[in-house]
């Protein structure tokens, strides 16, 4: 059995060695003409702005926390799954083992349901939509658009020309369309 894990160690060592062997082989031929520009981080052709090691979104932390719960769950479920069938077949455990498994999964599913209900599984959280409530006191001069209090506009036939003292009647005809600049002839 120790042979097995020694084998794995050798596999890891060979993998690492393969990388460095290839790098050394390439070093014989590959050019190396570094310039200060070449050493700058790639930011789509711009000069890099600020540090690359920026503060990170808290949502990734939540994902990691949720994962820990389930990672542990899988680690516990693996031995249960392996022995369940054979142990049940030769009578070492009864149906209770299955019930226990269901309970274990059920408790963790409760945890998932809790996180789900709290909204921590949502990547995009619409805080702004939840936080916005119209103020109970009306703002002076504020009118919602479209105004919910106003009656819906009634459309009856073509609109008549509006006679107004401040605004001339809407011009009729194609020739009166406002033209920007001088039209080319």
């Amino acid at each position: 059995m120790y042979f097995d894990y020694a084998n794995v160690l050798v596999f890891l060592a060979v993998g690492i060695g393969f990388v460095f062997f290839n790098m050394a082989l390439g070093a014989l031929v590959r050019p190396s003409l570094p310039t200060p520009e070449q050493k700058t981080p790639y930011e789509c052709g711009e000069d890099p702005i600020g540090d690359a090691w920026v503060n990170f979104d808290i949502r990734y932390y939540t994902v990691a926390l949720v994962y820990i719960v389930f990672g542990v769950e899988i680690a516990f479920l693996f031995p249960w799954a392996v022995v369940l069938k054979s142990a049940f077949a030769d009578g070492r455990i009864g149906g209770m083992a299955f019930v226990e498994g269901v309970l274990f999964v059920g408790v963790l599913f409760l945890g998932l349901a809790y996180v789900w209900a709290k909204g921590d599984l949502d990547w995009v959280k619409s805080y702004s939509a939840k936080a916005y409530r119209p103020s109970p006191t009306p703002t002076p001069g504020f009118r919602a658009f479209p105004d919910p209090a106003a009656a819906p506009p009634v459309v009856t036939g073509p609109p008549a020309a509006v006679e107004s003292s401040t605004r001339p009647a809407a011009p009729v005809g194609a020739g009166a369309a406002p033209s920007h600049g001088t039209p080319r002839s």
């Binding site: 050019p31 003409l33 310039t35 520009e37 070449q38 700058t40 790639y42 052709g45 711009e46 000069d47």
Partner: peptide, 13 residues
């Protein structure tokens, strides 16, 4: 300027 920088950032050849 950006073209120059992108060219510089490419590894030779």
């Amino acid at each position: 300027e950006r073209v120059k920088r992108l060219y510089e950032q490419m590894p030779s050849p």
